[in-house]
Design a protein around this nucleic acid. Structure first.
Lengths: 208, 208, 208, 208
DNA sequence: CAATAAGCGAGACGGTACGTCGTGTCTTAGC
DNA sequence: GCTAAGACACGACGTACCGTCTCGCTTATTG
């Protein structure tokens, strides 16, 4: 996307005033700021423009609508929604349990919940471009999870050949849905989740 | 308590014309009909009212906004979103694989995807009542999954003591998110998901 | 045959509960009460019903709409809009000047202005029945004016043969329009009005 | 005043897109067009907007409500309600009789009656601005009447010193009220009206 | 004296218009 | 030619009122 924008810019070679990258960034930051406190439904393009000190048209020059602005804001990590650490001590089960505990205690804040909801509200459009963006994106800790699992796989901690994307989904998606509902899961729930998945990944014949 | 309730009931004593349960139902059915073809964002209270042959005020008398109507419509199963069968042959892995296959082939239709998105769009509100409704509800096949798992537990097919809600989440939530994005998972992905979870649930010391 | 006729008459005679004249009157009084303080546009049938302690349907059983209620209320003189006295001392000019002075000082109150406006607002309907009612009715002091003029005519104070309705209009209508606009006329204005009309009515050849 | 206005204008300095005078005019014309055939009560802001090819918000940006639009439309003479000619042959009585005859034959058409009613319906608001507008405006033939009377006064046709506004009211207001009721006055009525007023205006001591 | 029938207060109903708000486009002046 | 500002056409929102309908209950007449 950015590459394409660059190309276009190079192609037309600066006829008239160039688009203000500063405005672009100001919009993203303003959106991030607003999303901390107000839900997606109450977010307005006009309000974003005002907060960013930008004209409404400037927003529509860069994005096709409000959803696109919100998506780019959240997907490019303008917010503090950088969730939690996933350590790599060599003990997958322990690391995942640490991760779930951090998740429950740190991610289930009103602000994060609200942002997660905004992301979903913006993403749930009947729009092919959005679908592609979302299906390709590695939200939240998807990336971290996959990385940790791959490290475990290489280390022989888990049996090889598993579709790590599926495992990531089994571990992460339940948290996402709980986040959307705003109900933090209990400790036993999280423990079972990690337990089942880690056991399910153990090399053949390994005992508990 | 009952006496008091009776008293209250006797006190109000049905003054004026009672609310029309027929209108209530007509709205839910009209909404269900519309949701098959129209995305949530294009759904209008006025259109629901017209489709139901009902005044707009009647809708606002029963529900506080469009989201509430859509939620009640989808949560009370007015639609054909009854997903797929989850057989109980005694072989949990086989049954779950059957279920995932049905899921992929039957649930990832434009209509079901659209309704799933509508449910989420309506559910992602910053509203306590909605939160409670959603956290309490057993959407999609949550109920069926839990039931199948409990049956397996009783039969000794899986180790006891696991939090079945967590297991259900590990199996089901990934499908829900894929549904929202509109991207059906691949066969290997589904197989890994089932495999990992079923293995993870096997009784202690059991070998593959 | 007569018996049968009697029977028919008896049959059409009041079966069921008779209409409550008390409710009828209560509505008129409530309307009169409300019209003192709130403008026609802010008057609602529901509010009248509430003020009268009456069901809305009862109002619609007696009148076809709000305008009809207001018209009947004002035309039947339920209000204190009984304007001012028009004395009959034998000196038409003096009497009319007295009347105009009372008019200006007493009729141009917010309450009377508001009621006059309500009457007009209710009367200005594209409805034949209303037209007939209004054209036939003798509002305000039309009756008094005509009576006074006739008395003057009989006494030879004014020349005979004038269309007294027209004279009444020339004298009264200007006050009505000033009332609607809410702008009391000046003293000179009123004096000219009376002067011109009285002079114009003087017997032929009479000098000032 | 003008200096201050200039200052204000200079201060705000035309920020943003200026209001479209074209839209303003389109609304007035559309309203005028609609008022020919639709009574005030059936006139809708939405319909005006549609007829004018204008957004509803644009109407509310210029006027505070439907009444204000209708008033401006009728007061600024967007309609063909230019009533009738009032000739100036030097014979006041003859001219006024001509005028009344034209009035009766030409003004009492459904269209003009409807517009007159609309004007009144819109004008009868409990609103100070409306009061001022109406009290200051010279509706219908007020202007023509005053002008003709002044010309007569200058020519010595009538006695000097009369409040011509009052005379105008005596002559014109009765027609306005008859117009509102929709009942054209008879010939004798009109003749009396003119006769009385013209006689009442004759120079002192003049005989018939 | 019961049955019947219509009116009663209350309030929900199907509609319609309101006035506000948000979207995405367009039009100014200024840089 | 892009910027901020803001008016524009469009259309949904949620409210208010209209005139009708439906409750449980009176209150008369009539069989």
């Amino acid at each position: 996307m950015l590459a394409m924008a660059d190309q276009v810019q190079a192609e037309s070679r600066q006829r008239g005033r160039p688009r203000s990258e500063a405005s672009h960034q100001a919009v993203l930051e303003a959106t991030a700021r607003l999303l901390c406190s107000i839900p997606y439904e109450d977010l307005t393009v006009e309000r974003i423009a005002a907060e960013a000190g930008v004209g409404k048209q400037t927003i529509y020059r860069w994005w096709k609508n409000k959803a696109a602005v919100v998506l780019e804001t959240l997907v490019t990590g303008q917010t503090d929604m950088e969730l939690v650490d996933l350590p790599d001590t060599g003990d997958l089960r322990a690391d995942l349990l640490t991760w779930t505990k951090s998740m429950i205690s740190e991610a289930f804040t009103p602000s994060t919940i609200s942002m997660a909801r905004s992301l979903v509200a913006a993403g749930v459009q009947e729009d092919p471009a959005t679908e592609e963006l979302l299906s390709g994106a590695a939200f939240w800790d998807t990336g971290r999870l996959v990385q940790r699992l791959r490290s475990a796989e290489e280390r022989g901690e888990i049996r090889p050949g598993a579709d790590l994307a599926a495992v990531t989904a089994a571990l992460g998606d339940p948290f996402i849905l709980r986040l959307l509902v705003g109900q933090p899961p209990g400790e036993r729930w999280a423990q079972t989740l990690v337990d089942v998945v880690v056991r399910g990944l153990q090399p053949q014949g390994a005992s508990d």
